[in-house]
């Protein structure tokens, strides 16, 4: 999904910036039947973001309710100690969110000095989070706790993997914004930076929620 968001951002970027006609249809602008379309308003992107987050939220709510029901069935549930590394990862992810937010706010001033540095730092922290998650998996694997070992471990791996996939998407978006640079953002009303930051904060909050569920629901 993030990849498509990026393509949408491209459209928006041209739209909010240039308002140029016939930008996508190439060549036949003189044909009245193929007049260019007006750009999508900025507000729609934020509506879209909220809707996308709602859909992702429902996905995780379904998993969480499966977690609660499955645990309630008792019998074979064996809780295990969560790797302490997860808490470190959590701090890293939340720090990443803060740094990205700081970078986003830098865009409000012209010129946005050090935007690239802050934004890239935030992205690197995001990568560090994923590396940390994989390390936590390896710790568990070393203890002989795998996906199919027990329902408790199954859910742990499902939650972390599903969240991780969404983080990967977020990293792609962060990378895209970093690559295009501050000038591009400011010429497009910071649209892709704002959307990416919103998505990224959501992933941070979602992770905290999942971790609390895994910790206390264990």
């Amino acid at each position: 999904m993030p990849a498509t968001v990026i393509e949408e951002l491209e459209r928006a970027a041209v739209g909010t910036g240039g308002r140029g006609p016939a930008r996508r249809d190439g060549g036949d602008g003189d044909d009245a039947r193929r007049r260019a379309k007006p750009p999508t308003p900025r507000s729609a992107y934020f509506t879209g973001l909220v809707l996308g987050l709602a859909a992702i939220f429902m996905f995780f709510i379904a998993l969480a309710s499966a977690f609660v029901v499955r645990k309630g069935l008792g019998g074979d549930w064996r809780s295990f100690e969560l790797p302490g590394l997860l808490w470190v990862n959590t701090v890293v992810l939340l720090a990443s969110s803060l740094v990205v937010e700081r970078a986003r706010r830098l865009l409000r001033t012209q010129p946005a000095a050090r935007f690239g540095a802050w934004w890239s730092t935030g992205s690197l922290l995001g990568i560090a989070f994923l590396v940390g998650q994989v390390a936590a998996w390896r710790q568990l694997a070393a203890q002989g706790i795998f996906l199919a070992t027990n329902p408790a471990s199954s859910f742990f791996y499902v939650f972390t993997a599903a969240h991780g996939v969404h983080v990967l998407g977020g990293l792609a978006a962060l990378g895209y914004v970093a690559a295009r640079g501050a000038a591009h953002q400011q010429s497009t009303g910071n649209l892709s930076a704002d959307l990416t930051a919103g998505y990224w904060h959501f992933l941070g909050v979602l992770w905290v929620g999942l971790l609390l569920l895994l910790t206390f629901g264990r």
Binding site: L51, A54, A55, I56, F57, M58, F59, F60, I61, A62, L63, A66, R70, D76, L147, A148, P151, S154, V158, A162
Partner: peptide, 25 residues
């Protein structure tokens, strides 16, 4: 659709894991 299909996706994921990864959801 927005609220329902995510739930089916989650259910499908768990079912797939039961089939190919030996989990017991």
């Amino acid at each position: 659709a927005l609220l329902a299909f995510g739930v089916l996706l989650a259910a499908g994921l768990l079912l797939l894991l039961d089939r190919i990864a030996g989990t017991s959801f």
